[in-house]
Design a protein around this nucleic acid. Structure first.
Lengths: 230, 230
DNA sequence: GGAAAGTGTGAGCAGTGCTCTCGCTGTGGG
DNA sequence: CCCACAGCGAGAGCACTGCTCACACTTTCC
């Protein structure tokens, strides 16, 4: 990673990066399904079989791009939350949510790659988990801060869900009340729903002023996890 | 449509149906991306080019399957809502939501076809709109009934969203208060998010008792649109 | 009855992911 | 210093895809 020993090792790093760059460009333009190894090779002036020296298969290339996309999305949320560090938790929640939406709209194909239909027969390997978690950790941290500082409103959970709520809290955030963790998980899924609906065209001819609509919906989600607006 | 005139017209209908059946089977097994015209033709003992007498392209076949999937999902929601016709609106909402989830889990690839990543370069034609609306009309009707019978709780909408809320209400349900229509649209997106998160594996290693979790989340959504549990 | 549609066939084009062999070349051990 | 070896790119090739086209055959309709 630090000092590439020889010219060959250096070249390998550069070529690998060039392949990923070209692939990312194709992904952004045409979408994952039309990402073709041969086209990538063509763009780089190589022959397609040469790519297999760097990536064992098309799926492995996709996995790399998936991790990059998760990281980019996570970073967008992180910086948004950081820039809103002085605001009330509820406002930071909305800021982070809006960052997710903006990133998705700016990189629709990359968002679709990570949150759209999984490629058939392809299941994301374990290595993606840390990067995939980053967005949700941002939201979790906002709730955690709110809980530490001024407390969060709790919406009780029905009895039948209590064991599961306790289990989730123990797994994800033992320092938070189970009801809050439950609401947080649901809110993450719902946030994904709001973004996906807009991105995949389900709001066509329904919602026009989507930014305002989203801001309101995100604020409602914040309220749902117990964050209060000052 | 009623009486196919000659043997030829009858045959055409049968062959068309057989093609769609075989395609649906392949779709259910392998997913949309691996649905291959040639494989369908092979299964039917035809040569691939013969299929083009019935469907101008692979995308047109997919469109038919998409409409069928929308209709099947809509019907599932409709019957669930009808069977819960005696219950309070909030419970009917949950029943319809659970029907959507169940249908999605039972037909993951078909659900992915309609609500997952749109096929690149493919945009659903107008003909899909009526079928696509059916699910949401079910939820809308539940809210409408509740509004007529005992009224719904209204969560005020921020000033900046008021014009858009009024516009949406005028377009979708002029008989309902704008705040309620706004909440309904958001809830639909959020319902889609809950189902999608579970279906596409984002709940892996997070939520275990997903049915109970979903029921609670759907009830929260019902509460969000102003339905009250008795 | 004959012209005109409708339908299935098979070849073929351009594209895909992926494998394999063949040379060339940079690298590390003797 | 030199040479064997590993890494690398080229090219051919396999099996597959969607789609087109000319060609026969059959049903339909005037």
């Amino acid at each position: 990673m630090s000092t590439p020993q020889g010219a060959r090792a250096r070249a390998r790093i550069e070529v690998t990066a060039a392949i990923k760059d070209a692939a990312r460009r194709q992904l952004a333009e045409e979408g994952a399904a039309k990402l073709s190894l041969r086209a990538v090779a063509r763009e780089l002036g190589m022959v397609s079989s040469a790519l297999y020296r760097y990536f064992p298969s098309r799926d492995d290339l996709l996995t790399e791009l998936i991790i990059d996309a998760y990281d980019a999305l996570g970073e967008a949320a992180e910086t948004a939350a950081a820039r809103a560090g002085d605001l009330a938790p509820a406002r930071r929640w909305v800021a982070a949510s809006e960052a997710v939406r903006r990133w998705a709209l700016a990189h629709p194909h990359e968002y679709a790659l990570i949150y759209g239909t999984p490629v058939p027969g392809y299941s994301a390997p374990e290595t993606t988990v840390p990067s995939a978690s980053r967005v949700w950790v941002v939201l979790l941290d906002i709730v955690r801060d709110a809980h530490r500082e001024r407390g969060v409103a709790r919406t009780p959970v029905p009895a039948e869900l209590e064991p599961e709520a306790r289990r989730m809290a123990a797994d994800l955030a033992p320092d938070l009340p189970p009801e809050v963790v439950t609401a947080l998980v649901a809110s993450c899924a719902q946030l994904y729903g709001l973004v996906g609906f807009e991105l995949f065209g389900q709001f066509n001819r329904v919602v026009e002023d989507r930014e305002t609509f989203f801001r309101h919906a995100a604020a409602q989600l914040a309220h749902g996890v117990g964050l209060v607006f000052p």
